[in-house]
Design a protein around this nucleic acid. Structure first.
Length: 835
RNA sequence: GCCUGGGUGGUGGAAUGGCAGACACAAGGGACUUAAAAUCCCUUGACCGCAAGGUCGUGCGGGUUCGACUCCCGCCCCAGGCACCA
């Protein structure tokens, strides 16, 4: 053993050992005691900073811990390798995406290995490999078969660089999530997945995910956006055309004074054709259609609209009210038409004020003092219903059910549930993705490529230098094919599948990653899934996790798996931030902010174990943390001190035998250390099994290590004391090993153990060690600590009270006072209330 | 506006009804050294006091309790999600 901690030597030694001995490889046919620990696979960008590292380090701690607890742990890793950056690199630097993906994967794999994270590399996959994307295409076909994949011409979110975007990829400010460019609208024929069919199930089954962070479930629930209400069938007064609306406030139905519809509403064209107002309608509608969603949202704070000259009839009271086309009604939500109640809806109120439309109060306040003329804003509170025919006088909330029932009874409406969730746009006009396995035939329409002809291969020889659009679309050899159904000339679909789908099922593939005749084996995935612990970033709270849940539900319904949810437990780690040198502000670590810390340098200068220890010690892993360059020194100091402690006591540690550590034979000195040891085992184990608060687990280990120093054990100490010291060191190393595995393996072997520390038994708590025969209790007067006494454990309350009252420390405060009450908490404290 | 989290020393954080500030970082002092690095020891929430000791202190204001960082009510601030969603 060397005097100075030779981290780089021992780290490469043990990394090689783990690889050579296939320590993390698992045989999935042995599924008894299985534990599937999955860390979200990365997009191979080429380099990872310490913020990325946190993810894999947390996953590795879980993997190693569960291994030591005797589980057969499946811990795979792969690459989410399709995506736009590789395609842009091809455009800019002429490197084929295939090549850049392979290069980046190699680089990042080396990084992962340098951190000592353990994976079964035999199961490595990359979503851009034909052996993988063949099955991504297969999943597309399964959805197509089930009528869950369809094509429609729709205004889609369009980014000049990233082409089409899913709603989820557009940020609230109307810019592209990926590149920050403004998102506009474009009318294109696109492929969608009918995720809205599963809106209810996706929402309801959130209840099953008790081991997910509440925050994530809440975000998904928000995103799905369920609202209960009614569908009410209004009719155009002049034409009898139906104009249904969705409303959550049918209690305000008698207050409708106009109808507002979206510029995209199907009735617009009929109306325009017949309206006297044609020119102004046309002008307004065209202007709105040209405006991007983001801009329109922005403009819509100033409500705009155009009267159509037409009216709608309110089926409840037969009133005929004007029909307006407005900029604030969205075609994508509900029916694209809104029954406008200015008195009780702030948006309608603003619009009515602007265009001088009547305001009719149908819900009054407590004092019955609302006056339509004097209102400055809508009254959105509850109250008694007025001016509403047979519902007058009732409380508005309580009447809602009956009001809808009335519509149902009279066949002009019904109860309904509406979701905010939209169908999932999966077409991308890009090259670097899995081709959508569809052939367009002039006679048969969109025909799926037969399963046995998969994969539809991406051609390598494409021209990336075309100005706009998808290089695939101009690849003659790719486009021309025969219709699988009738054999006539057809054209291949040139859109590729959004990268999201590739990551929606990779966790199934890991179970049988080399299957050539199936995406996965049903029996095997039923045994290994759901994933026992999924670990990843909060940024995937909606997109990836919702899509994956959807795909698994579809596969379940199609009979390919027996589980409905892919991830039993989810852990989302916080981001690592760092102060910018430029402005001193705290930012998420990122290349663009120039505040990245390279783990490579840290591995070189301090070693992987130090990097890991500091990353874990920085704070509770679910929270964001600020990286500190000094902090890493602390972690390094601890490991160096540990190394020196072992080096200095090597003979003692190697030669001491400790078949039994009987607490009854111990003097108080070693007994205290022995107790500290078992308290540490108890607390660290609780942190590992609980909320993954590795920061406090490490703090406990540091305390034990400090206690070992304070015991001043040397070669001259008693045999029993040496035995306790050795037991403490051995347990400490085992407890530390998930966090700092290399140094732990090395010390473990130096102490005379033959096999990997991963085979060591996780230490058990000796309950006898925790028991104390004397205990220090706190003495309080009026809740303030005034002293403490040591008493035998479990003495009765009366005795404790007597000792407290007679104590010097207390009598000082009670003298001359009236004792009102004495609270005795056995083995903890005595509190005396005086006045 | 709605829905989540969160607010504790100079800093990261610990404590989920019972000794607030564990464990670290930083800072200051000291030892060792020709010197530096490394290492080791001591101090370190604020205020009063020579000291013994005392007072205050977990965003703010109330409440429950013998006892509140912790539970309840009302507010303020910060972060995240959703948002003309009818």
């Amino acid at each position: 053993m060397k005097e100075k901690y030779p981290f780089s030597e021992i780290e490469s030694k043990w990394q090689k050992y783990w690889t050579d001995n296939n320590v993390f490889n698992v045989d999935t046919s042995q599924y008894r005691n299985k534990y599937y620990c999955l860390t979200m696979f990365p997009y191979p960008s080429g380099t990872m900073h310490v913020g990325h590292g946190r993810n894999y380090i947390i996953g590795d701690v879980v993997t190693r811990y569960k291994n030591m607890r005797g589980f057969n742990v499946l811990s795979p890793m792969g690459w989410d390798a399709f995506g736009l950056p590789a395609e842009n690199a091809a455009k800019d630097r002429g490197i084929h995406p295939k090549q850049s993906a392979a290069d980046n994967i190699a680089k990042m794999k080396r990084q992962l290995q340098s951190w000592g994270v353990g994976y079964d590399w035999e199961r490595e996959i990359a979503t851009c490999h034909p052996e993988y994307y063949r099955w991504t295409q297969w999943i597309f076909l399964k959805l197509f078969e089930r009528n869950l994949a369809y094509q429609k011409k729709a205004p889609v979110n369009w980014c000049d660089l990233c082409t089409t975007l899913a709603n989820e990829e557009v940020l609230a400010d109307g810019t592209c999530e990926r590149c920050g460019r403004p998102v506009t609208k474009k009318n294109l024929n696109q492929w969608f997945f009918r995720i809205t069919d599963y809106a209810g199930a996706l929402l309801d089954d959130l209840k099953l995910l008790s081991e997910w962070p509440e925050k994530v479930r809440n975000m998904q629930a928000n995103w799905i956006g369920r609202s209960e209400g009614a569908i009410i069938n209004f009719k155009i007064t002049e034409t009898e055309d139906p104009c249904p609306v969705f409303t959550t406030r049918p209690d305000t139905i008698y207050g409708v004074t106009f109808m507002a519809i979206a510029p995209e509403h199907p009735l617009v064209s009929t109306i325009m054709a017949k309206s006297l107002n044609r020119a102004s309608i046309e002008q307004f509608v065209n202007k709105q259609l040209m405006t991007s969603t983001a801009e329109r949202m922005n403009d819509a704070t100033m409500k705009d609209g155009v009267p159509t000259g037409f009216h709608v009839t309110n089926p409840y009271n037969g009133d005929s009210v004007p029909l307006w086309i407005t900029n604030y009604v969205l075609m994508e939500y509900g029916t694209g038409a809104v029954m406008a109640v200015p008195a009780h809806d702030q948006r309608d109120f603003k619009f009515a004020k602007r265009y001088d439309i009547p305001i009719k109060i149908v819900i009054q306040n407590e004092e019955m003092s609302l006056n339509a003329e004097k209102m400055t804003e809508a009254y959105v509170e509850d109250g008694p219903i007025v001016a509403s025919g047979l519902f007058d006088g009732r409380n508005n909330r309580k009447a809602i059910h009956d009001i809808i029932q009335y519509a149902k009874d009279n066949k002009f409406g019904d109860f309904t549930i509406n979701y905010r969730l939209r169908d999932w746009l999966i077409s991308r006009q890009r090259y670097w993705g899995a081709p959508i396995p569809i052939v367009h035939c002039p006679d048969c329409g969109a025909v799926p490529v037969p399963e046995d002809e998969l994969p539809v291969l991406l051609p390598d020889d494409v021209d990336f230098n075309i100005e706009h659009g998808n290089p695939l679309a101009s690849h003659e050899g790719f486009i021309h094919t025969k219709c699988p159904k009738c054999g006539k000339d057809g054209r291949r679909e040139t859109d590729t599948i959004a990268q999201w789908l590739c990551s929606c099922w990779y966790f199934l593939r890991y179970v049988n990653p080399r299957l050539t005749d199936k995406a996965f084996n049903t029996d095997d995935v039923n045994r290994w899934l759901p994933v026992d612990q999924y670990i990843g970033g909060i940024e995937h709270a909606v997109l990836h996790l919702l899509y994956s849940r959807f795909i698994v539900k579809v596969l379940h319904d199609a009979g390919y798996c027996s589980f409905r949810e892919p991830f039993k437990a989810l852990f989302t780690q916080g981001m690592i931030c760092k102060r910018s040198d430029k402005d001193g502000q705290l930012y998420k670590m990122s290349k663009s902010k120039g505040n990245v810390v390279s783990p490579d340098d840290l591995v070189t200068n301090y070693g992987a174990d130090t990097l890991r220890l500091y990353t874990l010690f920085i704070g509770p892993p679910e929270k964001d943390a600020e990286w500190s360059d000094q902090g890493i020194e602390g972690a390094s100091r601890f490991l160096r001190r540990l190394w020196r402690r072992v080096f200095d006591n090597l003979t003692l540690l190697q030669e001491t035998e400790y078949p039994t550590c009987n607490i009854n034979e111990m003097a108080s000195d070693e007994r205290n250390l022995y107790r500290k040891l078992h308290e540490t085992i108890r607390d660290v184990t609780a942190d590992m099994d609980g909320a993954f608060h590795f920061n406090s687990a490490i703090a406990r280990i540091m305390e034990l290590s400090n206690a070992m120093d304070d015991s001043h054990t040397t070669g001259d100490s008693s045999d029993l004391k040496k035995a306790v010291y050795r037991a403490a060191m051995e347990a400490l190393i085992v407890l530390l090993s998930p966090f700092a595995p290399h140094i732990s393996e090395e010390i473990w072997h130096e102490m005379g153990n033959q096999s990997s520390i991963l085979n060591a038994k996780w230490p058990e708590v000796d309950v006898a060690a925790l028991a104390k025969d004397e205990i220090e209790v706190v003495l309080q007067v009026n809740g303030k600590v005034r002293g403490r006494i040591t008493v035998p454990v479990d003495i009765d309350s009366a005795e404790m009270e007597r000792l407290a009252m007679s104590s010097e420390q207390i009598s000082k405060y009670t003298r001359g006072k009236t004792i009102r009450k004495v609270i005795v908490i056995p083995n903890k404290l005595v509190n005396i209330a005086v006045s």
